[in-house]
Design a protein around this nucleic acid. Sequence first.
DNA 1: TATGCCAATGCAACAATGTTGCAAAATATT
DNA 2: AATATTTTGCAACATTGTTGCATTGGCATA
Lengths: 139, 139
Amino acid sequence: MMYSIVETLKKNQLSITDSRKKILELFVRSKGALAHADIEHESGTEFDRVTIYRTLQTFVEKGIIHTIPTADNSVRYALCKDACAGGHHHDDHVHFMCDDCGTTYCLDNISVPKLSLPDGFTISQTDVVVSGKCRKCRS
Amino acid sequence: MMYSIVETLKKNQLSITDSRKKILELFVRSKGALAHADIEHESGTEFDRVTIYRTLQTFVEKGIIHTIPTADNSVRYALCKDACAGGHHHDDHVHFMCDDCGTTYCLDNISVPKLSLPDGFTISQTDVVVSGKCRKCRS
DNA sequence: TATGCCAATGCAACAATGTTGCAAAATATT
DNA sequence: AATATTTTGCAACATTGTTGCATTGGCATA
Ligand SMILES: [Mn+2]
Ligand SMILES: [Mn+2]
Ligand SMILES: [Zn+2]
Ligand SMILES: [Zn+2]
């Protein structure tokens, strides 16, 4: 199970730049999801805020990371699986956000349930976000 | 099926003010969920932005309205059912947001499915938000 | 109905988050 | 190495949300 930063960038026809390498590396090393602010902190003053915004946007478009809806309406990002290449996302798993520590997990093994909706509604995407206490924070 | 604005405010021990009456009335009349900006538009320059924020916050605390997580991380609010009084929310229904018109619906009849999570995770809340096309927007 | 207390509002100031245009710098292509 | 293309940093701006404080208005009580 290894992840090659440069390979991923090349595979997605992105030029290899410092910011892209460093930011993608952060995601690979990180356990949970990252918010824009996390990245800004971790990388110090190395990159401009705008660059981080644009890099995240590019990664989402390419299917390298996906956004995670959260109960508190903050924006978080996490690595996609291989299946998401080419701008098409297939992250049909449940997300969990800890009420205590705020860590956001991709529960890759828990897939989102199929729902039947009232007549006239067509489904393009289903997001399930669970809140509660994570392993570390239950006391 | 009628909804008394003043009754609701009294029941929740809130003093009857213009902003509270008008904003609650907007929710009662509205089909879908409302964002802060919607309310700001609808009510013109009648109320200060800050008043709207504080009113929404109060309504959420009292269990008069609930927030809706959306895939695009914008904050929306919708009326609660009676069961939510006293600050305890029981809005265990699925939410739907139309990709075209942006209207956000409470699907009160579709309840969120029970999930089993990995060991160590405890669930306090489950949010399901579905995107797609609504009745009006399917072509 | 008038008095007075307390809660709610408006205003100003600020913080956080996100977007855009453009020149300079870095990367890719030849 | 020279050139063409992309990406970056900066500045300026827009939007969203928060806080403190003086003023206003609602409500209870007399
Ligand atoms: Mn995920
Ligand atoms: Mn709802
Ligand atoms: Zn935790
Ligand atoms: Zn629609």
